[in-house]
Design a protein around this nucleic acid. Structure first.
Lengths: 207, 207
DNA sequence: CGAGATATAAACTGTCCAGTTCAGTTTTTT
DNA sequence: AAAAAACTGAACTGGACAGTTTATATCTCG
């Protein structure tokens, strides 16, 4: 009567704990979430939670890591399959931007930034499993395109940093601070198209 | 019968309180700073602090506001007095970027982002006295330059959002998360020059 | 000087919360 | 079925910390 085993199973309530933690952390932030809230949401006893995770911080770290990895995994697949440079960049931008602007993306960002002082390894984990992967994917794509003669870029690393930044233009900070409603698709497209136009105007091989 | 408003110089220790609060908040963040630490740093009694500020949150709000305003005031002056467009943008970028990357700028950003959920007005105040002013200055500068025929920009608001974003490329997030040392002047120049080049490549009137 | 405003130290209140403990129950394994 | 492992619930500990109170002191200005 063995159900197919979950990978890395440390106990039967592992997933329940993570899911409850995700819910509460995303709703209330790190400080705002109490462990009692989490165990309640998870439907699990406090002792069980503490048998999996030595403390609240590491529990959060796990939640954030899982969240970021899921996202940037999904991103990798999509950039590859596109014909034109412009199309590929637009596709990448869309996915990236949608995550930046999503409730979960914003909340992870808020918490990580807020806590990175007290817990430096949280910042590191987040960076590695999110922004660093985006940078890497983009860098490789640009490099290939330069070698193929489609783009003309001097400083590829800089360009790979500029593009995601352009995708945030105006919207991201305002959302982060809770100063506006989620953008409509039109607003996102305006920013993305602007980003791609600006980017390609300089880096597209003209001759 | 008005209760003494939170903000209003009403005693000789006002500045001392603010200075102590600035020190401790910048060092420890909002949650990390205890009011007892602050009064100790300020050389003031707790009762005095609470006679000026009804609570910790409003004290922090005041500190952040003062900090941002000082910065963006300084910025306004400099953009005006520059001959070329490129020169003006470079100057603006330098000042902006230096603040983004400074310890104080980063710490204000961290705290505000971290707390904006729980205290929405903190986010608003910060945005108005910092990013919004930068946007406004830049927008007016671009508008004038377009009217003078030096630039050719379709969506001025978007462009005014793109430029500051470009100035962060790569460095800002890493610093925010404590993942690297403060950048050297060369590194900052690389990012700034890259930003100005990219920006002007598209928006400079070519004909 | 002297009155009112301002400041002080220190103890105190009340609350919140991370993490522990343990006696007892349920589930899994053998 | 019996042993082992996982889980529960609830109470408890210890510490942190925002904000209050009080009795006392010092400054400022008419």
């Amino acid at each position: 009567m063995n159900a197919p085993q979950a990978v890395g199973k440390q106990g039967r309530k592992w997933d329940q704990v993570l899911e409850g933690a995700r819910t509460v952390f995303m709703r209330d932030g790190f400080e705002g979430a109490s462990v009692d809230d989490i165990v309640r949401a998870a439907g699990v006893s406090k002792a069980t939670l503490y048998s999996y995770f030595p403390d609240k911080r590491l529990l959060f770290l796990e939640v954030a890591k899982v969240e970021c990895q899921a996202q940037s995994d999904a991103a990798v697949a999509q950039v590859e399959g596109s014909d034109s440079i412009r199309g590929a960049l637009t596709t990448a931008a869309k996915r990236m931007t949608r995550f930046f602007m999503s409730d979960v993306g914003l909340q992870v960002h808020r918490i990580i930034v807020g806590e990175s002082q007290r817990f430096p390894e949280i910042g590191r984990e987040f960076y590695e499993s999110g922004p660093a992967r985006v940078h890497e994917i983009l860098r490789m794509f640009l490099k290939k395109s330069v070698e193929a003669g489609h783009l003309d870029i001097d400083d590829i690393d800089l360009a790979a940093d500029q593009f995601p930044e352009l995708c945030k233009a105006g919207l991201h900070l305002k959302l982060l601070l809770g100063l506006r409603e989620p953008p409509t698709d039109e607003e996102i497209d305006r920013v993305i198209d602007g980003a791609v136009d600006l980017f390609l105007c300089k880096y597209e091989r003209r001759r």
